[in-house]
Design a binder for these strands. Structure first.
Lengths: 218, 218
DNA sequence: CGGCATCCGTGACGATACTG
DNA sequence: CAGTATCGTCACGGATGCCG
């Protein structure tokens, strides 16, 4: 028996058949930052029950959006990772985040917060302020760092990734340091990159063209 | 008591709090084509139960995404219509439709079909083939016509509307005539606008620059 | 007739406990 | 660590009824 479907010959309805169930797109959001273990997913999706998470991951795997892989040879742990088709959902998450940012407001007392949840909005804020910026920008937030992968020629490319840039081949071209409140203001559009820099709520470090461009951005 | 929320300080999660429930985004899809009565919505959303439709519409109204209005003075019927904020969800539907078109395939025997469900994919196909096209293109499908509102300067503008262009002020600059199978092939990316025209599966009528541009499109 | 509200059976969801 | 098992609750889908 197939999963519950809208049974409509409509591209949007088909997409919702695949990713419209509760929690599914938030799982994709987590995996957009990079491969994750089951326990990590469970920790960064507060409120999801274990059985729902397991069943969503199975559905995503059956639909070819997620792959289960064992990272090392002898490890009995494994990672969940987006397939190319799964990664193509980033524009959907980006559109949702852009719309939702309009009245994001302040965090409510009951709201969970994770640093990488700011990645999509910050990517948008940076692109808006410096449309031609290219390279890797490491974002340092109190809760942990991530990287924005800026490529003006490929707006639907990888976009961002988790963690610091440790690999020498992937050394960041610029480092942005800010706090959660500034990230929230940037995400909600209450602040532009240039204004945040001018008010010293955000610092841009680096000697590359990207760093210069981000410092000069309005 | 508020509705069930993900309780995450994340723009995408907030968006899903508002429009992530079953049927909600499909209701928005219907209203993107223009105002609708309750019964019309129910007819074009096969499978939705009456109480769910009524409750979704109330939620959308409470969230400021939909307005209830009485069209005429003495009519006891009323229309549901998107607010500006509701209309800003079109990029979300467009992203979902673009992703879902990848494996839209052929209609299944159980699939419902409505002409205006092709509007978002056709808008994308036309924009891809003729990025600079501007004006109103009436699309004539066997199930009924609708209009694509092309404005290269405002990709997130109205986009499309229901029905023929009756208003003289809104007379179409071009008329596209095709059948459902051609629309499906265009939506799924199996066919480009130019190829459809070349194979005479689609005709472009009109003497305006827009009509000429659509005929010349690759 | 359009616009719901009510009732009811089923399945999805959420919390907790338990297992390989 | 990575799930499965169990169970109570709630949301959903279908049918029917009410009311202007």
């Amino acid at each position: 028996m197939p999963r519950r479907s809208y049974a409509q010959y409509c591209a949007a309805a088909r997409a919702l058949d695949a990713v419209g169930e509760r929690w599914t797109l938030l799982i994709v959001r987590e995996l957009l930052a990079g491969p994750r273990r089951y326990t990590d997913l469970h920790a960064d999706l507060p409120g999801v029950s274990t059985d729902v998470l397991a069943s969503r991951l199975k559905e995503l795997e059956a639909d070819g959006l997620v792959e289960r892989r064992r990272p090392g040879r002898a490890a009995n742990t494994h990672h969940y990772e987006l397939t190319p088709r799964g990664r193509r959902l980033r524009p959907v998450l980006a559109a949702l985040a852009a719309w939702g940012a309009d009245d994001l407001g302040e965090p409510r007392p009951t709201d969970a917060v994770r640093s990488h949840w700011f990645a999509l909005p910050l990517l948008r804020a940076v692109r808006r302020a410096a449309p031609q910026a290219a390279g890797t920008a490491e974002v340092r937030l109190p809760g942990g760092p991530f990287r924005l992968l800026l490529d003006p020629d490929d707006p639907d490319g990888p976009g961002y990734a988790d963690g610091p840039a440790e690999d020498t081949a992937d050394r960041p071209d610029a480092v942005l340091t800010l706090d959660d409140a500034t990230a929230a203001d940037l995400a909600a559009g209450r602040l532009t990159l240039g204004a945040a820099t001018a008010r010293e709520r955000l610092t841009v470090d680096g000697t590359t063209p990207l760093a210069a461009a981000l410092r000069a951005a309005g």
